[in-house]
Simulated scan of single mutants.
Amino acid sequence: MGINPPDTGDLHVSVEDLDAAAEYIERLKQYVEDTISWEMERIKENMKGDSNSPQIVSNGTPFGAFADARLQWQALERSTANMEAHLKGLSAKLAGLKKGTEDIAKAFRDAEERNAANGKDIERLLESAASPPGGAEPPTYPYTA
């Protein structure tokens, strides 16, 4: 049992749309890095509590010093660290997505340039070809695109 390749017979690629997608991905990445990461820093600062008032009880948390309060505080710290790690991962994945989109756009742009150059070479070769013997002109056909 084999896997059939996708049918790409009518595939059309807009390099401009790919460039626009890369710019949009960059804006998303900047939003994650600037806005959301800044909010995470603000949350972590708020979690530190009031540093001007010393803890009365050792091993106390902003939730209190009893065992359940310490467990809840540890859970909140883990949750905050996990969210921060996810944001860093998201930023890295967006950077990779942007790079891949730019690479695809570059590949199609290069292919279009090669195709245009090859077309010009073929035109030049056809124009420089010798006329058929006997001086007869080759028939001309209307150009249709």
Rank of each mutant, 00 (worst) to 15 (best):
residue 120 K to V: 00
residue 42 R to G: 09
residue 28 L to R: 09
residue 44 K to S: 13
residue 86 H to Q: 14
residue 29 K to V: 00
residue 20 A to H: 08
residue 8 T to I: 14
residue 98 K to G: 14
residue 117 A to E: 13
residue 133 P to M: 08
residue 11 L to H: 06
residue 25 I to F: 05
residue 21 A to V: 08
residue 98 K to N: 08
residue 8 T to Y: 06
residue 101 T to G: 03
residue 100 G to P: 02
residue 108 F to C: 08
residue 131 S to I: 10
residue 66 F to A: 10
residue 92 A to C: 01
residue 130 A to R: 11
residue 133 P to R: 05
residue 100 G to E: 12
residue 72 Q to P: 00
residue 21 A to L: 14
residue 112 E to R: 14
residue 46 N to L: 14
residue 130 A to I: 01
residue 124 R to E: 13
residue 9 G to A: 14
residue 22 A to L: 02
residue 94 L to I: 07
residue 92 A to F: 08
residue 15 V to K: 07
residue 35 T to Y: 07
residue 134 G to N: 12
residue 35 T to G: 05
residue 107 A to K: 13
residue 117 A to P: 02
residue 115 N to A: 15
residue 48 K to H: 09
residue 126 L to F: 07
residue 11 L to Y: 06
residue 21 A to H: 06
residue 67 A to Y: 03
residue 79 S to V: 00
residue 109 R to S: 14
residue 32 V to H: 11
residue 35 T to N: 11
residue 131 S to T: 10
residue 65 A to E: 08
residue 116 A to F: 08
residue 137 E to R: 14
residue 37 S to C: 03
residue 101 T to M: 05
residue 54 P to S: 04
residue 9 G to H: 07
residue 102 E to G: 01
residue 130 A to V: 10
residue 39 E to D: 10
residue 136 A to V: 15
residue 90 L to M: 11
residue 67 A to P: 04
residue 32 V to F: 12
residue 55 Q to V: 11
residue 16 E to C: 00
residue 86 H to M: 07
residue 22 A to N: 02
residue 123 E to C: 03
residue 125 L to Y: 06
residue 122 I to D: 09
residue 136 A to Q: 12
residue 136 A to F: 05
residue 19 D to H: 15
residue 44 K to H: 03
residue 80 T to G: 04
residue 134 G to S: 08
residue 27 R to C: 05
residue 51 S to A: 13
residue 91 S to P: 07
residue 113 E to S: 14
residue 74 Q to T: 05
residue 8 T to G: 02
residue 32 V to T: 10
residue 58 S to K: 13
residue 59 N to V: 02
residue 124 R to T: 14
residue 25 I to M: 11
residue 112 E to H: 09
residue 61 T to I: 01
residue 121 D to L: 14
residue 109 R to L: 05
residue 57 V to S: 11
residue 113 E to W: 00
residue 19 D to C: 04
residue 119 G to Y: 03
residue 15 V to R: 09
residue 25 I to C: 03
residue 52 N to F: 13
residue 31 Y to C: 04
residue 50 D to P: 01
residue 45 E to S: 13
residue 137 E to K: 15
residue 82 N to P: 00
residue 138 P to C: 03
residue 18 L to H: 05
residue 82 N to A: 12
residue 46 N to I: 01
residue 136 A to I: 13
residue 48 K to F: 00
residue 138 P to A: 15
residue 29 K to C: 10
residue 38 W to H: 12
residue 28 L to K: 04
residue 108 F to V: 15
residue 50 D to E: 12
residue 100 G to K: 09
residue 8 T to C: 11
residue 93 K to M: 10
residue 86 H to L: 12
residue 109 R to T: 12
residue 95 A to Q: 03
residue 52 N to K: 13
residue 65 A to K: 06
residue 77 E to R: 08
residue 49 G to H: 10
residue 9 G to L: 08
